[in-house]
Simulated scan of single mutants.
Amino acid sequence: MSYNDAPWGAISGNNRGEVRLHKALAAAGVASRRASEDLIAEGRVRVNGSVVREMGSRVNPETDRVSVDGRAVQLDVSKRYYMLNKPRGVVSTMSDEAGRRDLREFTDQFEERLFNVGRLDYETSGLLVLTNDGDVAHVLSHPSFGVAKTYIAKVRGQVTPQTIAKLRAGITLDDGPIAADRARLLNSGESAEHSLVEVTLHSGRNRIVRRMMAEVGHPVVDLVRRQFGPLTLGTLRSGAVRELTKVERGELLTLVRASASPDASASPHTS
């Protein structure tokens, strides 16, 4: 993946594949052509990091990075982004040798060839991103970029504040130490049989939440991923798929571009 800035002179001419900036913004659903011209005139549009005010400026939708008010814009309209609320009992692959339910059940309705970003294990439900954008998939799924994910775990037993503190401070598993970025108890003292715990972490290690909770003596009964980076599951029903909104796409692309930028931290989170 490359997010190298193109020299401004290379995108301002009438080269093959380029379109006028205001038309590209309109095609991307940012605003009408007239309103896009106003955005450009007001200095609210950047191309490859530089403010552009010239009405005749041209961009290549496949290579140039454009943002409006600091939020990234996807000019390549062939790129698609969807959110799936994956049910339990579905494998996070496009085929399964064991004949179990797989993601084709949800992607076959689309013309584009979509693939999943990362995985949720067979018994875990919740937010899964489907896309045909390999660059976005790489940043969101690779552990080195440290994209945060939030889970709600129903666990056995009554979890205490001391246990929550332990999750935050860090524990040691067979494959090394791990600490939750955030953890909190959602139903303190309401049940002796089960507790609800919210855990946020950036690790991509396999079955990490289940293993963490088992290590502190509270095996997981049910697990749902509610948030992935800037995306939140909201009220999307189990098994439903919807396209990301314009705002969600912008937030997602902004995160991806910031994470992949050469100016990003030289020492990203590691698992």
Rank of each mutant, 00 (worst) to 15 (best):
G9V: 14
G9N: 15
N14L: 07
N15R: 15
R16L: 14
R16F: 07
L21G: 03
L21Y: 01
H22A: 12
A26D: 01
G29L: 09
V30Y: 03
S32L: 08
S32K: 14
R33A: 12
S36G: 14
A41Y: 08
A41V: 13
V47H: 05
N48A: 13
N48G: 05
S50P: 02
V51R: 05
V51K: 08
V52K: 02
R53S: 15
E54H: 01
E54R: 05
M55E: 14
S57L: 11
V59E: 01
N60E: 01
P61V: 08
T63W: 00
D64Q: 06
S67K: 01
S67T: 12
R71A: 15
V73R: 10
V73H: 05
R80D: 07
R80F: 13
R80T: 14
R80P: 06
Y82R: 11
Y82N: 01
L84H: 04
K86V: 10
K86M: 14
V91P: 07
S92V: 09
T93E: 12
M94F: 07
S95T: 10
A98Q: 15
G99E: 01
G99Q: 00
R100Y: 02
R100V: 07
E105P: 03
F110E: 03
G118Y: 09
L120M: 04
D121T: 08
D121F: 04
Y122I: 02
L130C: 08
L130D: 08
T131G: 00
N132G: 01
G134Q: 04
V136D: 04
V136I: 05
A137D: 10
A137Y: 03
H138W: 11
S141T: 11
V147T: 07
K149E: 04
Y151E: 05
K154G: 09
V155W: 01
V155D: 04
V155H: 01
R156E: 13
G157C: 12
Q158H: 13
V159S: 02
V159I: 14
T160C: 11
Q162S: 15
Q162V: 15
Q162R: 12
I164F: 11
K166E: 13
L167F: 09
L167D: 10
L167V: 15
R168E: 11
I171N: 13
G176P: 06
P177A: 09
I178L: 02
A179K: 10
A180V: 04
A180P: 00
A180F: 02
R182H: 07
A183P: 00
A183C: 03
R184D: 10
L186M: 10
L186C: 06
S188R: 15
S188A: 14
A192G: 05
A192D: 14
S195Q: 02
S195M: 08
V197C: 05
E198W: 13
V199E: 10
H202I: 10
S203A: 07
G204V: 11
R205T: 06
N206L: 09
N206M: 09
R207I: 07
R207A: 10
I208M: 06
M213T: 02
M213Y: 11
V216P: 00
H218V: 14
D222Q: 14
D222C: 11
R225F: 05
T235I: 12
L236Q: 02
L236C: 03
A240R: 13
A240F: 06
A240E: 12
V241K: 10
V241G: 03
V241Y: 01
V241H: 03
E243G: 10
T245G: 09
V247S: 12
L255G: 00
R257C: 08
A260D: 05
S261K: 10
P262G: 00
S265C: 08
S271G: 15
